[in-house]
Amino acid sequence: MKQLHERAHELLEQKAVSVIIGYGEGTEGRVRPVFIRTLEAVRLLVWDDRCRVNLAVYLNKPEIRKFGFPIAVVSTPATVRTIVQLIAEHQLSIGDVVVLVRENDTVRALIQKEDLEQYARNNPVIFPPFVIEEIELLKKMSIEERFTYWQEELAKCFKCYACRAACPLCYCEKCITDVNQPQWVCVAPHPVGVFEWHINRAMHLAGRCIECGSCTIACPVGIPIALLTIEATRVVKEEFAFTPGIDCNAPSALSTFRVDDKETFIR
């Protein structure tokens, strides 16, 4: 923590960044995001095991962007992968972000492409075992059972779009659900509207999801929606050997093909 404070102090003092996005003490023993702009505020930063939420999401928010790049972010492995993926999707450029990571009990600042990619490759996102158990459980179900499972889970959804707001890769300025000429996705939170939204979300994140789990954490009614995008990305990984978030220049897995692909269906 002391190291982080020193590093943050240094970055702000040298005006190397406009803002530091980090974790601060919240209510009821929880942490919350803090946006540090002044030297006095640096002391608010905390960094411990509670700090798991992916702060990269704030990099897409116009309120934060208006401070101007570079911006520093206190990062978990998932955050680093998110930033690499955002660079690959042309939403950020190298140098826009100073990525603060913990490595062997020291705080490192990653800026360059090679450092970001290397860290991302060496530090996979680890999610709690129950997530993997849940996926395996779902896979064992028959199609009908799985459909029933999701019908029951999604029946709770009232379309608050917290999942969208929490997802660092949902950065469209106008989401497809907001397109009303024509209205492709039904806005009402009835079963059809809810399914349309979640299927769209899963498809739009297939091969892009970093598996940070922010959407599930954000869901106020506790739907494990990250399972959909995690599994979609795993399918893309199995089919196309593509992992998002480790290569700043990777083209999108679903809009490209390789000439030397051994599969012939695309020819």
């Binding site: 999707e89 042309h90 939403q91 469209c172 300025e173 106008k174 999108s252 679903l254």
Partner: peptide, 15 residues
């Protein structure tokens, strides 16, 4: 302030 709803992900470019 949008000017275009395109966010410049350029997935279309590779497609």
């Amino acid at each position: 302030p949008l000017y275009s709803t395109c966010v410049g992900c350029f997935m279309c470019q590779t497609a």
